[in-house]
Design a binder for these strands. Structure first.
Lengths: 351, 351
DNA sequence: GCAGCCTAGGAGAGCGCTCTCCAAGCTCTA
DNA sequence: TAGAGCTTGGAGAGCGCTCTCCTAGGCTGC
């Protein structure tokens, strides 16, 4: 009978058993040596390590995880609304600075802890359910949640499942979950103060989607601060955090309020779009119209003129989220906590 | 004796055994139903699914993987030179458009296949060895390699280990590995043609690090094309693909060749930096100095003026890499193959 | 010199699943 | 009606590891 089976059977890798045989000890002893647990006779210790080298043994993480219930993996879940799988939005989201900065910040901590990051995108309710099921089984030791939709059931599902979790950005609905967030309202207030101090008279705002917390906080913080300084009314146009939407929003704002001499834009990407619209409209920045962005992403520095913006220390926040998660994985009894970062104003040329 | 042990034992989740008991069948039958394998009596089929619902059973992927040797995970390995773990470079790399575009492209395919992406960064030789060991054990079904150093041992290690792998960008040394690459030389030639056709006289180039293939191909492609059109000598300054290095390189070029009236910059990020340097030097773009970038990343559109650039369809390439990998995972006997994408010229305002 | 204690190493039972046998029951033809 | 040939479900052996017993042996103390 010939082997007509499809998949090629990989050659058998050395197992604990093999090492034990070579070393002339039991499987348990090899395991103890490898994991450095309990006192093993120094001589045997050496014999075992020698056998490991001789056989080329590498522990099988899967098998180990099955029994220890620890995987050395943290999941980064990007939770999105009901979107089709072939929606190009996600590709753009990943390419946006936001995502990269978060990943970079997370990895800076996880890497040193020898933990890998498993990226997952969930859109449908079914995907969410399956994800939580997998998490309960310890597919990952913990999860970092990047929640995009305003009223996302995922944070609640994850906490109910008892899976260690940390959100980046606070949940829209009150959920007892760990999170790391930015004082978005304070940041917006900083922008308002700066523009008013600059002597701007008619100050508009371009906001993000109204239903996400980070976005609405920026609007309310801005409005409150403006009101306190005598600007009871703020012309507002909303975009969706993309460059194109910022371009369109600026055009609209210019159409509705031709006398506008300053604008606070809720993120740098939209601010870059706004800059383009202003240039096309023949307005000079900052002389005719002052522009303040938000995030201090790479786009701020690349823009012409470089953007005055609100610094959002996303890398630090993500790193903190990773540390928080790791501590929760270590001690599951810890109560949920949150860390709020304070934004700062970075003054460049645009305002 | 009280339970003083540290970790809280998670409550026991229902297993196949439990479902089998509830359904009154054997474990094997439940497994068959769940995996839709073979014909099972329609009545039993229903009974089993009912029991699954009743118990809230979710298969344990870890246990399944241990026996099937399939994990439903693909690793994205960013291989870097000997760098310290706390080197901030990686954070910046992740935040750069390149990384995000690759991840976005990969996910667009993997997501639909229900495969998750595990991100790993390896710097030291020891990390590389451990990674390959884990991969041999089937920690991931396959691996996408993003190789940064010029002479990286990883591609060879991975192929030697018999792990399905696809590189994005060809390896510097000849290794029988699957890869997806861009015809970088053709792209550079496109830039040269365009600048010459525009009537530019003294055309310089800002290159990336000399030892990475993508970078050296752009240099050689540019030089060759220039020579063919009578420009035997090209002033060249090299950077490292960051915005700041582009800024510095442009200043240097301007200092060495004040009469330069065009520059081809090996990526958009550096081109943005070059734009800043030109602005500060009082040169108008494109009137005084024409600038052509490379990549067509988001930075190209955000720049002022928007960059004329060479389109690098990174998302498509990453998606193709994912498809290629998935097919190699399915059929491990397939011979290594490569796909080369053709770049195109995108004309905007800078040249 | 022997009970009692401590320590090091082995045996073996799982972790939760898949998958190969194998037996039982069925249909169908000679 | 018996035998071949098929379908269907169960038993049980792993996958590679950890970890809890348990035993054997060396040590101390009276």
């Amino acid at each position: 009978m010939t082997a007509t089976g499809g998949r090629v059977r990989a050659e058998r890798l050395p197992t604990l058993e093999d090492v034990a045989r070579v070393a002339g000890v039991s499987r348990a002893t090899v395991s103890r040596v490898i994991n450095g647990v309990r006192n093993v006779d120094p001589h045997l210790h050496e014999v075992v390590w020698h056998a490991v080298g001789q056989t080329g043994y590498v522990p099988n993480r899967l098998a180990r995880s099955l029994v220890t219930r620890r995987t050395g993996t943290v999941a980064l879940v990007v939770s999105d609304s009901e979107r089709h799988d072939d929606d190009p939005f996600m590709g753009r989201f990943c390419a946006a600075p936001y995502f990269g900065r978060v990943v970079g910040g997370l990895m800076s901590v996880l890497r040193q802890a020898g933990v890998q990051l498993a990226l997952q995108i969930v859109g449908t309710a079914e995907q969410r359910t399956r994800l939580v099921g997998d998490l309960r089984h310890g597919q990952a030791d913990g999860v970092i949640v990047l929640s995009l939709p305003a009223h996302d059931p995922l944070p609640r599902m994850v906490t109910d499942a008892g899976v260690p979790a940390v959100m980046i950005g606070r949940p829209a609905d009150p959920v007892p979950i760990n999170y790391v967030d930015l004082a978005n309202d304070t940041g917006a207030a900083l922008a308002a103060e700066h523009l008013i101090d600059r002597g701007c008279q008619l100050i508009g705002m371009i906001s993000g989607p109204v239903d996400v917390p980070a976005s609405s906080d920026r609007v309310s913080g801005f409005r409150r601060s403006m009101a306190r300084r005598g600007h009871g009314w703020v012309p507002l146009v909303s975009g969706n955090f993309t460059q194109e939407s910022g371009y369109a929003a600026m055009q609209k704002l210019l159409g509705e309020q031709p006398a506008v001499d300053a604008v606070f834009v809720a993120n740098d990407l939209m601010a870059v779009g706004a800059l383009t619209a202003l240039r096309e409209a023949g307005r000079r920045v900052p002389d005719d119209v002052a522009v303040v962005g938000f995030d201090d992403s790479s786009a701020a520095l690349a823009a012409a003129p470089p953007l005055t913006t609100i610094r959002h220390p996303l890398e630090d926040m993500a790193a903190e989220a990773a540390r928080l998660l790791l501590s929760r994985v270590e001690d599951r009894t810890m109560r949920p906590s949150s860390v709020i970062y304070e934004p700062t104003l970075v003054i460049r040329a645009s305002a």
